[in-house]
């Protein structure tokens, strides 16, 4: 029989290993930022077409992730998609005329929202709405337009 002191030590090692693994998972393997982003402020934006945008897609500012898309719904008054995104609370200096565009990372990659700051003095606050938006580029539409322009040229 193993002595009880040895058992205590081995159990201690086991628990420490488990906790270390958990911390590694939190810090090295995943991005903890998605947790802290819960403490941010919400901004809405209307889009003609959101393409393949999904909840939890990233919101970037010059490529830096500053928030996440939290909700996607359809506004029956304006007949447009309405996106709610949560921006990190330390990004509190975006002008009101900031433009939101839906881009695709790579040719077939996921879609995300890119913000481009405007020039107004007023800044976006919780509940503000972004008015300048640029819809997602839908591949079929682009190809369709190209086809039309090619055929009309002839």
């Amino acid at each position: 029989m193993v002595s009880s002191r040895k058992i205590e030590i081995l159990v201690g090692i086991f628990v420490v290993l488990g906790l270390t693994a958990f911390i590694i998972m939190a810090l090295n393997i995943s991005n903890l930022s998605s947790l802290s982003s819960a403490k941010g402020y919400n901004v809405t934006a209307h889009f003609e077409n959101i393409g393949g945008l999904r909840p939890r897609a990233k919101v970037t500012l010059s490529g830096v992730v500053v928030g996440r898309v939290t909700k996607i719904s359809y506004d029956k008054e304006s007949f447009r998609a309405i996106i709610t995104m949560t921006l990190n609370s330390d990004i509190d200096y975006l002008p009101e005329d900031t433009q939101a565009s839906i881009y695709t990372s790579g040719l077939l990659g996921e879609q995300y929202i890119s913000l481009e700051p405007g020039a107004e003095d007023e800044v976006l606050k919780n509940g503000s709405s972004i008015t300048l938006t640029q819809s997602a580029v839908v591949l079929e539409e682009v190809i369709g337009k190209l086809m039309v322009s090619f055929t009309t040229k002839d």
């Binding site: 939190a26 090295n28 995943s30 991005n31």
Partner: peptide
């Protein structure tokens, strides 16, 4: 890995 794996999710 770090950009795609979300801790909270």
């Amino acid at each position: 890995m770090q950009s795609k794996v979300e801790f909270g999710h």
